[in-house]
Design a protein around this nucleic acid. Structure first.
Lengths: 237, 237, 237, 237
DNA sequence: AATGAATGAGGCTTCATTCAT
DNA sequence: AATGAATGAAGCCTCATTCAT
């Protein structure tokens, strides 16, 4: 079974009408469902208005509960933002892990991480935009993701594939390139190849020869094959 | 006269007590002086509190005028932000132009632009932080600066120094790397070599051979030489 | 049996962990026990936060039941306050009655009532503080206690011991002196002799000669003697 | 000229329609007038609802300004309460001082202070009720008044007129008697002789012989003579 | 030009109370 | 009997904006 089918089964690339959190909480208690509704609403409002401009009232309204209900579930705006950030970080990390479980080569891993991250976050438009509008409050998201990234970069360094020093500065630079590409993608300033484009640039920056960089960054990801294929569907479920 | 001396005479690297805008407006009418005071105050407040959290009252208080006076000069917070952004963009552009007036080589120009920009914005800590805290409202700042950048990148492409396609996506990526380095610098996460470090990475990304990239990015900038000596003026370039 | 042993057996001077009301309701139905738990909690919260600042939610939390349960037992905060006040008034009256059953002399009765009241309410710190923090809502408490007081004062008047007119104004004044002493005691502004001190002042005010007033107010109360001795039991009644 | 005529001329016993603070601020700036209006309104609301139940919104409404205006003049409810308490304390102290300037005998001073205080506070019904409903927040009021009281009591002790020890406990008891009488007066439970009645009781308590106590407490205060007489006006000064 | 008092909308938060389970 | 989620009114406070002086 291919990578994307995993994603698919997890419901992540499914329809978003009811909100990702809410649909996961469908079978939980009432409180959990309301909490999830609020979190979905918060993501939406953060995405639309940005974190600062978002108001608790607005989040509650978007979640279709009265404002008082909000405080039954969260202490304040920071609280729900932290909850959302944590959930997104967890989800992203889990998905990337799954998507890259069987890739050993550092060059492949590095470019795949960038491409999958952008793919994933643009599929969940609200998440991506919320990230975009509230970067500073989604700081936590960085932790895990960055740790994985660092590991891959260091592996590449040891394998001799990358010729730059791996430190926080490099990682920040690398990450900001990915973010910039994601934002361009979300804003419609670039097509579906945003991931490949930026991945290629990143590899070049790291010291990968141009040719190899292009090959790795544009290599078809198993995903696509599975997405269209027939036997995939069988395998799908 | 050398590059830095231009910067110096412009008062930019001097002390900031009275605020950059106010000191420039010293000889203008009272209205212009108040307007400048407000703009300086706004930069400071944006830098300290971020754009969203900044309040008109706070800006007025920081400018030492009553709140009502604000509205004599600006329509609202967005208005003053735009004015500030425009002035900063103009200043930055002018300074970079001056600093790079006599550099012909695209590789040199590109890396110098990045390094000077970071140098300049970290010297004017408030400007940098305001940019940092209010990126979205300083969007306009991009316009001019980006145009110059595009010109240099295309020149490099034509000269055969750069081997990537120059389009908006590349420019965004390039700019986000510079920004990321500036922010790291302002936050104290990296030393004074932030400019060189990121410039080297940018050149590698653009296709400049590692050795050449390192040489260009870390080359001593004429600045210092020019600042002290007389013959430096000759040596300047 | 002596006076204090009555107090002791009633559990009043014992430890307060479970709350006075709750421990009395130990053998009643579940509803009664919950009601008692709520009343104990209410006293505690009134004592800590004052009546106005106390919230139904807080009382319920302190009683370890959910907020909805409160309304099964009381209409609102006033309702539970009234219930608490009634119970406290009843208890106090009962205890004072018991403690003074065998005292005939009006001077003795008057000073003993004041001293016992202060002793009793400072032993039950929560009750005293609740009284202190919610005087206006414990108005009802006055009724019974005041009636007894009036009887003693009038008796003293008839016996010729007191030389002032006994009316509501005098009783209010007398009561406010006792209260003031209790509050000073609860606040730690005066020691265990608060009762004797104020009783002496009250007797002087009523017209009792200074010497006699001092003697009556500072006379050792039977309590202690009775509490330990055996013959005390005889003396008891 | 007699004491009361001073009070009268000061406008204090005059009509209260516009509020004591506001009428004093009539000739000050707009801000001061609004501030005074708010303080008058606050006294009224405290008197009606008590301090805890009073809301900033309600005070603003009573002062006929919008709620936002409140915060232009006071930080919060505590702030205005402190301002009001300070003003009342100052006024009361000043009036009592004036009313007792020429009394030397401690017995006279003590009973006059009590009687004047009650007279003064019941004339300013709102002040008295506010004191009544918000004792804890008018703590500051005690400071000055109590210091004067202490001085008079100690003077009496030294003169041999009082035979009790003068300490905080006694002063608290004494003050609570005065308060109790004031409250009875405000509630209509006692007539205009409340001051004399309680003053007599206080003197007895302090050790003044019954006869002397009665004489001092019920002695006509110059006020009354002046209020009615003609020659008083001459004598006034 | 500037002042600064006033406005009123809107955000945050708590809490008494109800109601379906 | 008890639960606990939800409600919505009401209180607190800030702030952009206006306006008379």
């Amino acid at each position: 079974m291919g990578v994307l089918s995993i994603l698919r089964e997890s419901g992540i690339f499914g329809c978003m009408e009811t909100g990702s959190f809410a649909s996961e909480a469908r079978h939980l208690g009432k409180a959990a469902r309301t909490r999830a509704k609020l979190m979905d609403a918060a993501v939406g409002v953060f995405a639309r208005d940005g974190f600062e401009a978002a108001s608790v009232n607005e989040i509650a309204r978007a979640a279709d509960v009265v404002n008082g209900t909000f405080y039954l579930h969260f202490k304040d705006k920071d609280d729900i933002a932290a909850a959302v950030a944590y959930r997104i970080a967890t989800d992203v990390t889990r998905q990337l892990d799954a998507a890259m479980a069987d890739i050993g080569d550092a060059i492949e891993r590095t470019s795949t991480a960038t491409r999958r991250f952008i793919e994933f976050m643009s599929a969940r438009r609200d998440w991506g935009l919320a990230l975009f509008r509230a970067v500073w409050f989604f700081r936590d998201l960085r932790g895990d993701v960055v740790n994985h990234l660092r590991a891959d970069l260091e592996r590449g360094r040891k394998q001799g594939a990358f010729t730059v020093e791996i430190d926080n500065f490099l990682i920040d630079t690398f990450a900001s390139m990915t973010m910039s590409a994601l934002f361009a993608r979300l804003n419609g300033n670039v097509g579906a190849d945003a991931g490949s484009r930026v991945a290629e640039l990143q590899l070049r920056m790291l010291g990968v020869p141009a040719k190899r960089a292009k090959a790795a960054a544009w290599k078809k990801l198993p995903v696509l094959e599975i997405a269209v294929g027939n036997e995939a569907k069988k395998a799908g479920r």
